[in-house]
Design a protein around this nucleic acid. Structure first.
Length: 134
DNA sequence: GCCAACGTTGGC
DNA sequence: GCCAACGTTGGC
C-alpha cells in the first residue's frame, strides 16, 4: 500500500467537482515523471488531493480504483490515466505553509519538486499530514 | 503579474 | 550529445 499526492488547480478541477462526480480518471498529465508515478500506482493506494495556485493546500483523500491505462483524451500512447474514487475531506485543510514549517516534511516532494503534479509520499509524510488535517 | 525552476525542443 | 532558447508550472 503506497501513498501519493496529486495536484489540481481548483479552477480546472476542484475537490468539490470531484466529490460531486464521486469518481474520475486522472487525465491531463503530460510529464514523464508524473506519468511514471501514475503507472506505479496500485489499486487500493491512497492519494492526497492538493489544490495548487490560489489555495495551496491538501484538501482530501481518494483511492486508486483502476490502475494506469491509455489516456482516453489522447491517441498518444505515451500518456495514461488512473481511476480514482473520492474519499474523505480533511477536517482541516493542510496548507503548503504548514507543510513547510512541519518537522518531518522537509523532504516532501511537494516542496522539493514544486512543479511535479503526481508524486509519491512516504508513509511518515502521509501520516504527518493526516494528523495535521484532523 | 512576476519570476524561479525546470522540462522540452531544435540547431549545431 | 550539448546547450541555448523557449514554454509551462506554480509560489509569491
Amino acid at each position: 500500500m503506497a501513498y501519493w499526492l496529486v495536484k489540481s488547480e481548483p479552477d480546472v478541477y476542484s475537490w468539490d467537482t470531484f466529490v460531486a462526480e464521486k469518481q474520475t480518471y486522472w487525465n491531463g498529465v503530460r510529464n514523464y515523471q508524473a506519468r511514471n508515478n501514475m503507472k506505479a500506482m496500485r489499486k487500493g493506494d491512497t492519494v492526497m488531493f492538493y489544490h495548487s495556485n490560489e489555495e495551496r493546500q491538501v484538501v482530501g483523500l481518494c483511492t486508486v480504483v483502476k490502475e494506469a491505462y491509455q489516456d482516453p483524451t489522447t491517441d498518444d500512447p505515451a500518456w495514461v490515466v488512473v481511476d480514482v474514487k473520492a474519499g474523505k475531506r480533511l477536517k482541516t485543510p493542510v496548507t503548503l505553509a504548514t507543510i513547510k514549517q512541519t518537522k518531518g516534511l522537509e523532504q516532501i516532494a511537494l516542496i522539493k519538486q514544486s512543479r511535479l503534479s503526481v508524486m509519491p509520499l512516504t508513509e511518515d509524510e502521509f501520516n504527518i499530514i493526516i494528523a495535521l488535517g484532523s
